[in-house]
Design a protein around this nucleic acid. Structure first.
Lengths: 110, 110
DNA sequence: AAACTATATCGTAATATTGCAATATAAGAA
DNA sequence: TTCTTATATTGCAATATTACGATATAGTTT
């Protein structure tokens, strides 16, 4: 008990849930927002951008990276993070498909 | 400790994180998928569609409803659930904006 | 009314997440 | 080499999530 029963669902459903889970925290949304705002990869100052302790941010970055939402390259002393387009395209496609379908059927009740 | 520090982030960041959290479980993705597949609102047979116990599904439906992703109307004995387009448009817009921005800047490193 | 059906709530065990102090690692600068 | 800077890891306390049996609620049928 307590564990998500991933085996009961499709790969696609698990993939989307994993990506959503990685975004299910405002600090991780804020990290994505920041990576988008600055116009290049960020080597260093993410910790100064957020009101959380360094180990906490490191942990959030790890989760984003594990989910494939960001990539990190070592650059000497620092680490250079940037957004992984491919993961975001998966999400964009999923939600576009849904809103398209909704548009077509024009909700028949509720 | 242990609690998300929502007050440190913007309303928009918290809103997106809340929506993402509601989708951060394959059962809830499966529920959305099912509501999309059948071409109308569903009054009744969600429990039979998923390999989880009835109280568990009821709980997942509640979370989707609290997040505003689905709407539920009482229909006699049953409850009629359907997708709330507005919440999904918020997500669709967010991810479309991101992929558009990524397209324009064409990642300068990583 | 009594039986049945559909859904929600309660209570609880197992597990996961969040946040951070302390500490470790590793590269660059002095 | 020693100092500094940047990031990761460990360990732990607080809290949240997941799953479900038991039970409650409420409408429908007989």
């Amino acid at each position: 008990m307590g564990t998500t029963k991933s085996a009961y669902f499709t790969d696609k459903q698990n993939q989307l849930a994993t990506l959503a889970k990685a975004l299910a925290h405002p600090a991780r949304i804020a990290i994505l927002d920041y990576l988008l705002k600055v116009d290049t990869c960020i080597c260093g100052d993410i910790v100064n951008e957020l009101p959380l302790a360094q180990p906490t941010i490191s942990q959030h970055l790890k989760e984003l990276k594990n989910a494939g939402l960001i990539k990190g390259n070592i650059d000497g002393n620092a680490i250079c993070y940037c957004i992984n387009e491919k993961a975001l395209e998966v999400l964009q496609t999923y939600f576009s498909n849904i809103t398209n379908k909704m548009e077509i059927k024009k909700s028949s009740c509720c």
